Computed example of a mutant assay.
Amino acid sequence: MRQWLKDNRGFVVFLLCFGFLRTAVADWNPIPSGSMRPTLLEGDVVFVNRLAFDAKIPLTDISVARLADPVRGDVVTFSSPKDGTRLIKRIVAVPGDVVEMRDEVLLVNGEAAQYTDLAPATEAMGDGVELPAIRATERIAGSRRTVQFLPPTAARRSFGPLRLGADEYFMLGDNRDNSEDSRFIGPVRRKLLIGRAHHILVSADILGGWAPRFERVAAPIQ
């Protein structure tokens, strides 16, 4: 073993540096589901900045330095408070906010979101199944994004009001009727945040024969 380490020390150092980089500095996250449609699609692989909010001891949730505070509108990866699964969603409310939803309309601190640019779309569900969808631009609390609704589905369209604690964040998927987010798993504590998703690295249509989607490569996540 000692001789193997001596003969392959360059490779070992590379693996150690690569492991430190991925667990403490930067990471990538494949998108397996449609919960963030139309912003992120199944088959996208996104770049995640692990130093966006906190510097943590690798492989732990222990923060050694706070670098910045998450803001409404950030797309983030985090560990689910329900079962530890890694998820990617959008922050819609931050510590101290009162958040609620009334018949699909998001409210933060009593301010109702405005929905414009409504347009029909279709949602691919796999195996050739498609559902009619509606896409709209959602504006609230100084941030904006494109969201999607699936009128035929049964979803949790009303909840709250809920006041967030001192280190709690409320997450929603942009695909509002097809997302297991804070409406179901509860608010997410800051220590469970992994990082902020910045850009799409590569993309392939996993629902359509794995055809590459070159137009999505290096696209910023808004």
Rank of each mutant, 00 (worst) to 15 (best):
K56H: 00
I200F: 06
P212E: 04
D44N: 01
M36N: 05
L87P: 03
R50N: 11
R183E: 00
F47D: 12
R66W: 12
F159D: 11
L40K: 04
L16A: 13
I200K: 09
G173M: 00
K56I: 07
S143R: 01
S35K: 05
C17W: 15
S179K: 00
R9D: 14
S35I: 00
P81D: 02
R183K: 08
V98A: 02
D181I: 07
Q3P: 14
A218T: 14
E138M: 03
Q148E: 13
E42Q: 08
A155Q: 11
P220T: 00
V48Q: 09
D61L: 14
R37E: 09
P58K: 05
H198T: 15
D44T: 04
A93P: 08
Q114A: 13
F47N: 06
A121Q: 08
E111T: 03
D74M: 12
L201A: 12
V48D: 01
K6P: 09
M36F: 02
P58E: 05
R157N: 12
V71T: 13
P187A: 06
V71A: 06
D181F: 06
P120H: 11
T146K: 06
A154I: 14
A93L: 06
S63F: 07
C17L: 15
Y169S: 02
I57R: 04
A204N: 11
D167F: 04
T137V: 12
G208T: 07
V25D: 12
Q148M: 09
R190C: 05
A218G: 10
G19H: 14
A204K: 10
L192R: 03
D174I: 09
V105G: 03
N178V: 02
A113H: 01
L107I: 09
A52E: 11
F149I: 08
R9H: 14
M101I: 02
R2Y: 15
C17G: 15
A93T: 08
A141C: 07
F20S: 12
Y169V: 06
R72I: 05
N109K: 00
N8D: 09
P38L: 01
R139C: 01
I206G: 06
P132F: 02
Q3D: 15
W4F: 15
L192A: 03
P152Q: 02
R196K: 13
G126S: 00
R9W: 15
N109A: 08
V94C: 00
A121C: 05
V48N: 03
A24F: 08
L162S: 13
Y169L: 02
D69I: 09
I88Y: 10
V25G: 04
R86C: 07
R213F: 04
L67K: 07
A204Y: 06
R22Q: 14
P95W: 06
A65D: 11
Q222A: 10
Q222K: 09
F159C: 07
E100K: 02
V188A: 08
Q3F: 15
I88Q: 03
L162F: 14
R176C: 00
G73H: 01
S182Y: 03
T77I: 09
R196M: 02
N178M: 01
K6T: 13
V98L: 12
R190K: 05
F14D: 04
T60N: 02
A55F: 02
L207R: 01
T77Y: 02
W4E: 14
F184Q: 13
G173S: 04
